[in-house]
Design a protein around this nucleic acid. Structure first.
Lengths: 195, 195
DNA sequence: AAAACAACATACACTTTGTATGTATGTGTA
DNA sequence: TACACATACATACAAAGTGTATGTTGTTTT
């Protein structure tokens, strides 16, 4: 009759608790935003106590950071998997763009990565995370496509501006706008960059 | 000897108190962000009590909204004043672009309008505010420039994406990046849209 | 098995928010 | 001018949330 909870190694305990917290936090952050989400609620949803939360994360912001990092890495992986080495730079760009939109169509991602993230962690840190997780590929692609035509500074700026458009498109689509026009405009723009 | 505070009409009292609160709130929101700014601090800075704050604003968010609206309208005005009716659409666009960057170089504006705003008020409301205060002019300009070449839907999408680039450029510049490359890329892009 | 450590749990002190209620100052009217 | 009323503000309070300090249970090490 006694509910002897299965014996778990510390490693397992940590992994499971952290996962549960990150998953529950993600859901609540998406639903109500960072500030409107309380640590008691997160703990409740993850079926642990606040003590566990504060044992594994320095504070609420640190937990948020973990959520963002996980989300960001997922997106980066999905983009990377969509492209292969035997594509032309343009093909890779186009495929990457599609993969990005696909990845960002997962519920809550635009909100987390493009709205809450910059507000809570700051635009500068979010930009760094972006670069580490996928944004660099965009710059690489541009570099190939514009070899010799532009200096590196301009290419960096262009990559930044381009990714701003991708982000805005993802947000608009998430907000209910028709995806067609946005995707068309983006595709045309990429193509025009090649000439 | 007694500090008889000058008799003020209710209209004056309201105007002064609200102004003081909005000004102090703006400064603190820029300095520490919305969530990290407390209403006691705002009231202290404005030299009124929290009672006054909650008398004039429904809650902290409503005060924030007022700050954002004021800021947004200022930017819109500065852009509008920069253009005149005797310019070609392209000229007006270019001038408007310059005016935007100029306006967004005021300390705290990118943070308020592009980061905190979307997070606190939501991306959808911020987009509406944007349209009411200046964003519409961008769409108008595009419509002129692309008369007949594109349908209205595409033009709306393009305007949105274009403004996303402007915003990102403003943020990058505010974050310390060199403004040159960003402005150059934006100018070239606008020019290329004309052909 | 005992000590040591990691993973939690509980209790508390503090801050913050919004509201409810009280006071003062200005305003319309007789 | 005096009174009634409305508006602007002040104070007090209840509820909720954050992070920390300290206690307890489970796991690992020796």
């Amino acid at each position: 009759m006694q509910e002897k909870k299965t014996r778990r190694s510390n490693e397992q305990r940590t992994k499971q608790t952290r996962s549960a917290l990150i998953a529950s936090a993600r859901a609540l952050f998406v639903e109500k935003g960072f500030t409107e989400t309380s640590t008691p609620d997160i703990a409740k949803a993850a079926q642990v106590t606040r003590g566990a939360l504060y044992h594994h994360f320095e504070d609420k912001t640190e937990l948020f950071r973990s959520v963002i990092l996980a989300e960001s890495e997922t997106v980066a992986c999905e983009i990377e998997e969509s492209t292969s080495t035997d594509m032309t730079p343009l093909e890779a760009m186009m495929e990457g763009a599609n993969a990005y939109f696909e990845a960002m169509s997962v519920s809550g991602r635009p909100q987390l990565l493009l709205i809450e993230g910059p507000a809570i962690l700051g635009h500068v840190e979010m930009r760094e995370i972006d670069w580490r997780t996928g944004g660099e590929e965009l710059r690489q692609g541009l570099r190939f496509m514009l070899e010799g035509k532009k200096d590196d500074i301009s290419i960096a700026a262009m990559a930044d501006l381009l990714s701003a458009m991708f982000d805005r498109a993802a947000l608009a689509i998430a907000a209910g706008e028709n995806s067609g026009p946005y995707k068309t405009v983006m595709n045309n723009l990429l193509r025009n960059l090649m000439e």
